[in-house]
Design a protein around this nucleic acid. Sequence first.
DNA 1: AAAGTATATGCGTTGACAGTTATATTTCTC
DNA 2: GAGAAATATAACTGTCAACGCATATACTTT
Lengths: 100, 100
Amino acid sequence: MTPFEALAEPNRRRLLDLLRAGERPAGELVAAMDLSQPGVSKHLKALREAGLVSVRADGQQRIYRLEARKLADLDLWLKPYRHFWADHLDALEAHLERDQ
Amino acid sequence: MTPFEALAEPNRRRLLDLLRAGERPAGELVAAMDLSQPGVSKHLKALREAGLVSVRADGQQRIYRLEARKLADLDLWLKPYRHFWADHLDALEAHLERDQ
DNA sequence: AAAGTATATGCGTTGACAGTTATATTTCTC
DNA sequence: GAGAAATATAACTGTCAACGCATATACTTT
């Protein structure tokens, strides 16, 4: 599962939002999401496979944590597009880039 | 179709990459992609609906153009996550944010 | 009429997503 | 050690949509 695919699902984006406020045990995430426990668990698995979250065991709980590095990758993907709105030389730059 | 969903598909990301080099008629895009003409046209429609590209008629051709604004939206979505890798205060900030 | 493109249609495969219920695993507690 | 808690995984069902192909057709402009 690529980060792109993982982020395409609203519930998964929601989970990331929740984790932005800090680490959280799976149970808290289940409580916060309007989904069944197995359902949340499946989305968490998807996020794990995308490298967007990590887990750590704490007693009988599983503590989930946002993995920012993978989002940094996304940020990197966005980079070559960024200058399109960062300045106003769009047309010129596009032209130069095209014939390079 | 949300930008997130649109970007989840590799062929669509590829189309955006091609358009980074400048405006292009649909035909050129079809030639560059290993897909049927209707296939490419469908992906272009998806990108249009996501606001990631725009079209303009030029004679019998349809000229496609990257719409950077929508990618800026994505950039914006990423913003609250950015400080997680921008500095090294992750734990502290997460803690503060959680109890705010 | 021809070119360029979009849209429609039909088909087939595959996967996403939801639900439910059950079970396996690990750890904690008594 | 029994049993409960927390979570993952499995298994099954069901629906719906994505994606590919191919072919056909509609539309607009030349």
